[in-house]
Amino acid sequence: MTSITIYHYLIVGAILFSAGLGIAVTKRHFIGMLLGIELMLNAVNVNLVAFSRYDGERLSGQLFALFVMVVAAAEVTVALAIILRVYGHYKTVDPDDLDELQQ
């Protein structure tokens, strides 16, 4: 009946994951890197949900995606708190400027 196979979901997930990786590498801003990481976590969830479609009895993939979401929420709160502390101390959000340990 359905013409959308699992490959479609996997390809969309792969493209979103690569875009998220590019964002996390490219952006010179802590929050920009967080945006990329959130996008990568979400792309992984697409894969989990797509595989869970064929597992209607137990839905392990969807449960795992639910746990991923919760961990992402916890991660972003702690990361934002750390970013605010770093910004209050160094007055910058550029990860390249925090090179005190290199000297």
């Binding site: 959308i4 979901y9 802590f30 929050i31 967080l34 945006l35 959130e38 979400n42 969830n45 949900v49 797509a50 869970s52 479609r53 969807q62 995606a65 639910l66 979401m69 919760v70 992402a72 929420a73 972003v76 709160t77 934002l80 970013i83 605010l84 910004y87 959000v93």
Partner: peptide, 30 residues
């Protein structure tokens, strides 16, 4: 579309309602 209705709703509530608002707050505070 993949048949995960509960996850779709929680995606909108957690990500759009929570994480994104938090990120925008973070952008504004820094």
């Amino acid at each position: 579309l993949a048949g995960a209705d509960f996850l779709g709703v929680s995606q909108i509530m957690i990500y759009v309602g929570g994480i994104l608002v938090l990120l925008i707050f973070g952008i504004m505070l820094t």
